[in-house]
Design a protein around this nucleic acid. Structure first.
Length: 613
DNA sequence: GCCGTTTTCGGCCCGACTGTTTTCAGTCG
C-alpha cells in the first residue's frame, strides 16, 4: 500500500471511531473527507511532510490534519488514532462494517448488550436477546443476519470490466419494459472508477410500480433489499466472462439500486447519482452562493423561508433539470465529464471566465479536452501465438485493421517470461522476420516488430542491446519480483526507463485488481525520468490491470509525461477493453496529444524511430 | 476539523427508505 493509501486508511479509522463515540459529526466528516482527499492525491504526501504550507494548501486539509500527516510521515504513527483505538474494542470495527449497521446502532449494541465483536453479535442474535434492545424487531434482526452472511462472503468491490457489461445488460433489459422512456447507469461506474461498490440504474417510466416489480424479478437477483415507489435495491450475482486469469464461476454478489425518476428531471438526477459525493457538495455550495438550491430533483431558486419541505414537493418550478447540460449552464459552468467529477479542481476550472455574463458556455474553455475512444488509432502492445496470444500475426493485424488502427505492434514476451512462452533470442530473430513477411499479407496497416521485454529484478532488460536495436518498438514491463521494497522498485524501473532503446514502460506497477498490489515505486521519480527520456507510461487497458491507475495518470499528466493506452491484446476480444483504458486516462485528465496512440502514423513512427538512430 | 466575494465564528448538502415508531431516528448514497 502506498503512503497515501495507508494514510487514508488511518483517517478513515479515526472518522469511524469518532463516529462510534458520538463525537461532533463535522469533525467526523472532516476526517472522512481528508481520507478521500489524501487517496486522490497524485503526489506522494510523505514527500510534502516538510512543507506544512503545501499540505494545508490542499482543499480539505487544515492545520490539524496536516500535523497528523507530518506525524505519520516522520514516525509512522498517529498518536490520536492510537488513543482513540484504546477506547474502543478492536472487534467492534468489524461490526461497523456490516451494511445497515451504523454508528448509533453499534454504539447501542456495545453499551447495552456488551457487543464487542462479530461473535458477540452472533451470540445475542442466536439466543434471541437482541430482540429486547430498543429499535430491534424481527425484521431488523433478519436484515442484520443477511448482511452478516453477505459480509462474511467478502464483499469486495467489483472490477469495472465485470460491472460495466452487467450494468449495460440490465439497462438493455429495462429499456424493453412497458412505459420505460429512458434508462442508464450512473454512480462510480459512470465515472469509470477501476472498481465499484454497487451499480446504480436510473429509469424514467410512466409505470413506476411495474418497473420496480420487474426489477426485483430480474434473472440473477438473489435477494431483495428494499423496494419502494422510487427506489429499489437488490443483490445480484455478477458472473464475469471467463478470462485468462479465470474469474469465479458462480459470480460475486453485487448490490444494484434502481431509482425511478420523472423524465423532465433526468439531468438533475443523473448528476446527483453520478456524484461523486464530494463533487456534488461542491456543486451544491456553488448553487447556494448563487441563491439557488441543487437537489436530485433540479436546480431551484432558494425559497429561504425556513420551511424544511423540499422544493420539488412544494410545487416550485426548477430553473433547470431535464438535462445535465442545462443544469451546468444554469450554474454558469462548462459541462464537466463524469470521469473527472471527483472534486479535484474541476468545478473551479469549469467556471465561465472572460465573456461578459458568461452566457451559455461561450467563454474560453478551461477544462481539458479529454481523450476519447475514437481518438485512439494504434495498438502498441499485442501478443500472438508465438508467445501466449491466441492469434497469428496475420490474424492480429487483420483484427487491428478492422478496428481502424493505422499501426499494430507485435510485442510477444521475452525469454524470462517462460510460462507465457517467452521467445529465446533465436526465436525472436525468426519472429521479426515473420512479422516483416506478414506485411505483404495484410496491407493498409503498418505492422511493427516489437517485444514486451521483461524488466528483470535489477532493472536490466531481458535481451541484449544488439537484439533490441532490431525492434521497431520496445515495451519494457515488470512481470516478476513484484513485492520489492519501494526503493528497490524505484531503482529498477528508473534503470529500465533510462535504457536508450525503450519506448514504453508497460503496466508500470504490475498490480492486479483484487489480487495483488504490485510495485510501489516513488512515482514522482518515475514521472521525472520518463519525461527526461521521452518514454511513454502505459495505461494497460485490461480491466484486471488498469495500470497506471487513475491517480498515477493524473500525476503523470501534471509532470508532463506521455502515456500509451494499450489493450495488451492476447485475444481478439481484448481490443474491447480499450474503453476501460480510455476511461482511466480521462480520470487522469489525459488530452489526446499526450497519448501516443492518438498520433498520426507519420508522427508516431518518427517518435519510435528517434530511439533507433 | 475546515473554511470565508455576505462570516476568523458559526456555519457545514439533501432527500428517500425502513422499521418500529404514534411523529421519528438511523442509515445510505
Amino acid at each position: 500500500m502506498s503512503f497515501n493509501d495507508r494514510l487514508a486508511e488511518r483517517f478513515e479509522r479515526i472518522a469511524k471511531i469518532l463516529e462510534l463515540l458520538g463525537e461532533d459529526k463535522f469533525r467526523v466528516n472532516a476526517h472522512a473527507r481528508a481520507a478521500r482527499t489524501v487517496e486522490g492525491q497524485a503526489a506522494d504526501l510523505s514527500t510534502l511532510a516538510g512543507d506544512k504550507k503545501a499540505l494545508t494548501a490542499i482543499e480539505g486539509i487544515g492545520p490539524k490534519i496536516a500535523d497528523k500527516i507530518i506525524e505519520f510521515a516522520t514516525s509512522g504513527k498517529i498518536t490520536e488514532l492510537e488513543e482513540l483505538e484504546a477506547r474502543v474494542p478492536p472487534g467492534l470495527m468489524r461490526v461497523m462494517e456490516i451494511p445497515g449497521l451504523g454508528p448509533k446502532t453499534v454504539a447501542m449494541l456495545w453499551q447495552q448488550a456488551r457487543v464487542e465483536s462479530l461473535e458477540d453479535l452472533k451470540r445475542i442474535i442466536d439466543d434471541g436477546s437482541i430482540l429486547t434492545l430498543p429499535r430491534m424487531g424481527e425484521k431488523s434482526v433478519e436484515k442484520i443476519k443477511k448482511s452478516m452472511a453477505f459480509a462474511a462472503e467478502g464483499n469486495k468491490r467489483l472490477e469495472l470490466g465485470v460491472a460495466m457489461p452487467l450494468a449495460e445488460l440490465i439497462v438493455y433489459e429495462v429499456q424493453k419494459w412497458p412505459g420505460v422512456e429512458r434508462a442508464a447507469f450512473a454512480g462510480s461506474l459512470r465515472r469509470g472508477k477501476d472498481t465499484i461498490g454497487d451499480i446504480d440504474i436510473l429509469v424514467a417510466t410512466s409505470d413506476m410500480a411495474g418497473t420496480g416489480e420487474r426489477f426485483t424479478k430480474l434473472p440473477g437477483v438473489v435477494e431483495v433489499l428494499s423496494s419502494g415507489e422510487g427506489k429499489s435495491s437488490v443483490r445480484m450475482r455478477a458472473s464475469a466472462d471467463l478470462n485468462r486469469w479465470g474469474a469465479d464461476a458462480d459470480g460475486q454478489g453485487v448490490q444494484v439500486d434502481l431509482r425511478v425518476i420523472p423524465l423532465d428531471r433526468w439531468g438533475a438526477a443523473m448528476m446527483y447519482f453520478t456524484g461523486s459525493k464530494e463533487h456534488n457538495i461542491r456543486m451544491r455550495e456553488r448553487a447556494l452562493r448563487r441563491g439557488q438550491t441543487l437537489t436530485e430533483w433540479g436546480l431551484f431558486p432558494n425559497p429561504d423561508d425556513g420551511d424544511p419541505t423540499p422544493p420539488h414537493k412544494r410545487g416550485i418550478k426548477p430553473i433547470a433539470a431535464a438535462t445535465e447540460g442545462e443544469v451546468f449552464a444554469a450554474l454558469e459552468l462548462e459541462e464537466i465529464a463524469p470521469e473527472i467529477r471527483e472534486d479535484r479542481g474541476e468545478v473551479d476550472l469549469a467556471e465561465h471566465k472572460g465573456e461578459k455574463g458568461g452566457k451559455g458556455g461561450d467563454g474560453p474553455h478551461r477544462l481539458p479536452r479529454l481523450i476519447e475512444v475514437k481518438d485512439i488509432r494504434s495498438e502498441l502492445h499485442a501478443h500472438t501465438t508465438a508467445s501466449d496470444g491466441k492469434m497469428s500475426i496475420v490474424e492480429l493485424a487483420g483484427e487491428a485493421k478492422r478496428r481502424g488502427f493505422h499501426t499494430i505492434t507485435v510485442t510477444d514476451h521475452s525469454k524470462s517470461s517462460a510460462v507465457a512462452g517467452g521467445l529465446s533470442p533465436e526465436r525472436l530473430v525468426e519472429h521479426i522476420e515473420a512479422i516483416h513477411a506478414a506485411r505483404k499479407d495484410v496491407t493498409g496497416i503498418t505492422i511493427l516488430a516489437g517485444s514486451e521485454v521483461d524488466i528483470l529484478a535489477d532493472g536490466s532488460l531481458d535481451y541484449e542491446d544488439a537484439l533490441l536495436r532490431r525492434l521497431d518498438l520496445v515495451v519494457a514491463s515488470p512481470h516478476a519480483s513484484l513485492s520489492q521494497e519501494p526503493v528497490v522498485a524505484t531503482e529498477r524501473l528508473v534503470r529500465a526507463i533510462s535504457h536508450p532503446l525503450v519506448h514504453i514502460l508497460g503496466h508500470p506497477t504490475g498490480r492486479l485488481l483484487n489480487r495483488r498490489p504490485g510495485l510501489e515505486p516513488d512515482m514522482r521519480e518515475i514521472y521525472a525520468v520518463a519525461k527526461a527520456h521521452d518514454v511513454a507510461l502505459e495505461i494497460n487497458a485490461h480491466w484486471m490491470r488498469l495500470d497506471l491507475r487513475d491517480t498515477h495518470v493524473k500525476g503523470a499528466m501534471e509532470a508532463g509525461c506521455l502515456v500509451s493506452i494499450d489493450c495488451d491484446v492476447h485475444d481478439p476480444r481484448d481490443f474491447d477493453n480499450l474503453r476501460y483504458g480510455v476511461v482511466t486516462a480521462r480520470r487522469g485528465w489525459v488530452t489526446p496529444e499526450r497519448c501516443v496512440n492518438t498520433w498520426d502514423a507519420a508522427v508516431l513512427h518518427e517518435w519510435l524511430g528517434k530511439k533507433r538512430q
